[in-house]
Design a protein around this nucleic acid. Sequence first.
DNA 1: CGATATGATTTGCT
DNA 2: AGCAAATCATATCG
Length: 318
Amino acid sequence: MRLDNMLLAEGVSGPEKGGGSAAAAAAAAAAGGGGSDNSAEHSDYRAKLSQIQIERMVSIIHRKFSSIQMQLKQSTCEAVMILRSRFLDARRKRRNFNKQATEILNEYFYSHLSNPYPSEEAKEELAKKCSITVSQVSNWFGNKRIRYKKNIGKFQEEANMYAARTAANATSVSTHGSQANSPSTPNSAGSAGSFNMNSGDLFMSVQSLNGDSYQGAQVGANVQSQVDTLRHVISQTGGYSESLAASQIYSPQGINRVYSEGIRHSRSRLDFTTGFVAGHLRLCMRMSANGGWQDAPTPSSVTSPTEGPGSVHSDTSN
DNA sequence: CGATATGATTTGCT
DNA sequence: AGCAAATCATATCG
């Protein structure tokens, strides 16, 4: 403190840091007070002054050094962050979910096929059950919805499997309740029949797998969701036409590019899918008035799991 | 080893 | 903010 004051008084040091002015005034007053000019004292004084100057230089260098060190740390941290985001990207070390988690998610998806949008609570519940994060659940449902919609035929077998499983569970729990699963399905029997006729061996095989009444009802519910999906596709396509495959791709009316691509990518499934679509267009148009998935967000009918809250616990991945 | 499946991210929309 | 769609990057399969 006194050194600082002296330095300031001698003009060796400027008021670099804050609060310099008051100290400088005080130092100036002090220096003006004592004015003895002995020669021996003077040389001693100068020696000490030069030493102080050296010390000051050292401290300046020290400060410079530490500031450079700081900058270096900062830039290194930035570089590390960039490297992390680039090379330790989560995508690069993707791990498939374990079978149980996938089954839980699929179970939910196919049992809520008419409205596969789990609420925040449902997502948390699923996340807890699957030991994944909520955002992973959201990712999974996003991917599932889009991929299911893009190629319904491909997921038909899976859909029926989970539908049958759900039916079996319902059966084991309560000996009845077959119709409770599809409350808003008007003509389940007829639609299921024609759906099976057109959709080919996948359905037949599943039916032969277990052909009891519960399974029939489940297929009806499944058809309902298929119809919901189809209604969405039709609304996106913006038209109702017989030769759907051709008109979708070449229609002048600004057809959604996505769906054209989806059909194009279907390849071998294309015949099946388009046949399915064309064969059920009439049915779809006559089907229930409440929409499917996102064009009519009505969470009224089958939805609302509304499970318990559970602990909000996350980040178990990897 | 190419094709496909799949989880994650990005982009654009509402 | 939540979603659809496209895309990326890795995993898995035949």
